[in-house]
Design a protein around this nucleic acid. Structure first.
Lengths: 206, 206
DNA sequence: TAGATTGTTAATCGATTAACAATC
DNA sequence: TAGATTGTTAATCGATTAACAATC
């Protein structure tokens, strides 16, 4: 039972997946890890690691550190990834195609169960076992399968419109690959994958 | 001449690409934009937009706002993207394939000029006009073509090793798609594209 | 000129870190 | 038990925001 009361800031949440990823690397090779180790690998301070984790419970043991298996379990529960999330992918152009490929390794607990597009050429096809359906079936599909998460790979000019539709159909989380800001109502989560912005951050320093 | 003396924090830099992207959307439709508009679209405050921009110069006019074309130019200069950056892509599995597709639209000032892989099946092929070369030619290629940026799409277990090599060969900026932390020396920039972490941030709130 | 909005200062807010008592 | 490391408090640091004089 996390003691998080939504007082936890988003910046703390954004570090949890990093802790989890690092812990998984050590899984098997040893049993416990101390805050300083975790911190050094990720470039944080030991105090910050302990502070972040302490927001959700007391997972460590004084003098010993954190049990890796146990902390992984706890983080998976906090992040709600101790199950498989079924997602839909909207748009099957260059980007969408790449995304579908990316998620073929389903180890991560996220699975694309259907693609949607408006191109009649694509509709009805099946790629890597995932069917491509027409956009106008999205509403029914989302509702019938209780889909909460959508991956957006449509042209930037369409992104906001499509997002609005999806939210209307019941989608609560959107991961968009369109380099376009999307405004979402309270209670809907949006995350951006924007390699160009990342590259621009790199070139600034070169 | 930016008055930035490396006192500018990375968090400010990370917002510049967002400002730029938003400005480009408005390009054509109007001549000027005020800080409040820019802020509202991105979910910031007007004060923050003005403060961020003021770190680099006085780009606005009291009573008028910012000339969009001019501000775009300035941001492009600050971010050093008023030219085309030639990049190499390391690894041509599922992920690498998707990445190559992604950068086929070369409007953004970033271009993949060569792919490198170790798979003999792939080496020698050419995809979308981009040749796939053996890893052992990377050093010469990087040095001959003065490549500064590499996209990394190798298995997580290889990421650190390959990054070390690339840095040794002269690479100064790495955008990695591997879900693995990479330690780089001072002066080398690293950015992570990690959709799984982004999804985990989403599921936390669901 | 009057109105609007910038650039910047000072105040506030929040996040990070240092330090240490608690305890494994 | 002695040594190590946690969880947490208090101090510090840095980022955001409010407010306003300067000025287009």
């Amino acid at each position: 039972m996390p003691k998080n009361d939504r007082l936890t800031s988003d910046i703390v949440i954004s570090r949890l997946p990093q802790y989890l990823r690092t812990l998984r690397q050590f899984r098997g090779s040893k049993k416990t890890i101390i805050s300083k180790e975790l911190a050094d690998i990720l470039g944080y301070t030991a105090a910050q690691v302990r502070k972040d984790l302490s927001q959700f419970g007391e997972f460590g043991k004084q003098g010993k550190g954190y049990n890796i298996e146990y902390l992984i379990e706890q983080l998976e529960e906090i992040l709600q990834i101790n199950r498989v999330w079924k997602m839909i992918l909207i748009g099957f152009g260059n980007v969408g195609h790449g995304i579908l490929n990316y998620y073929r390794t389903p180890d991560a607990g996220f699975e694309i169960v259907s693609v949607f597009d408006i191109d009649p050429e694509l509709i009805g096809r099946e790629v890597h076992g995932v069917p491509i359906r027409p956009m106008n079936e999205a509403k029914t599909f989302i509702q019938d399968h209780h889909i909460r998460i959508a991956l957006l790979a449509v042209p930037g000019s369409e992104a906001q419109n499509v997002a609005n539709q999806l939210i209307d159909y019941g989608i609560k989380g959107i991961l968009t690959y369109a380099a376009q800001n999307i405004v979402v109502p309270e209670g809907v989560q949006i995350q951006y994958i924007d390699p160009i912005s990342s590259l621009q951050r790199i070139t600034y320093y070169l």
